[in-house]
């Protein structure tokens, strides 16, 4: 019984990381959400955003970095590209946590859009430094818009996960 409880606790404690891993793998499935272009979306940033504010211990900076490296391992981009962005989100939130933690959902959504915008701009700049090519504004904006639009869904889901974690903690 004790073992079962420990196992349950371990499962829920590792759930955000596993969920992040699932979202990364899911983004690689050739699903083609858009009618014309094949494009994957880094929905995992919504999860990182939520847990960096409300439970940074279960998705700490090391795990965030690891998620980034795993994402980089699967793309043809240089290792550390996504990891840099993910850790940047974590870091900016750790600086603003005291303000963010008291915000209502709409304010959080706006803040997510702002922080993700900055990260996406930095990604685009980093990509320019690596390749010498500016990313297509259209693709870049579609990627940004989709992730921001799906934020409420992933935020609710992360809220549910966090609730379960707090129950077992």
């Amino acid at each position: 019984m004790k073992n079962l409880l420990a196992l349950k606790k371990m499962f829920w404690m590792s759930a955000p990381f596993l969920m992040g891993l699932f979202l990364i793998l899911f983004s690689l499935v050739p699903i083609n959400l858009l009618p014309y272009y094949h494009q994957s979306f880094p929905f995992v940033v919504t999860l990182i955003f939520y847990f960096s504010i409300f439970n940074p211990k279960v998705l700490n900076v090391f795990l965030v970095f690891l998620l980034g490296i795993i994402n980089d391992m699967m793309t043809s981009l240089p290792l550390g590209f996504y990891a840099f962005g993910f850790v940047l989100i974590f870091f900016s939130i750790s600086m603003l946590r005291s303000y963010l933690i008291d915000m209502v959902f709409t304010q959080l959504w706006i803040m997510f859009c702002l922080i993700f915008f900055c990260t996406d701009v930095i990604w685009a700049f980093l990509f320019f430094l690596i390749s010498g090519i500016w990313v297509s504004t259209g693709f870049w904006f579609v990627q940004y818009l989709f992730v921001c639009l799906f934020f409420p869904f992933f935020c609710r889901f992360s809220g549910y996960l966090n609730h379960k974690i707090q129950e077992v903690q």
Partner: peptide, 15 residues
């Protein structure tokens, strides 16, 4: 068979 699609704003390739 196309196994993975890593198309994004930054890269356009498949596995």
């Amino acid at each position: 068979e196309v196994a993975m699609d890593e198309g994004s704003a930054f890269t356009r390739s498949f596995i």
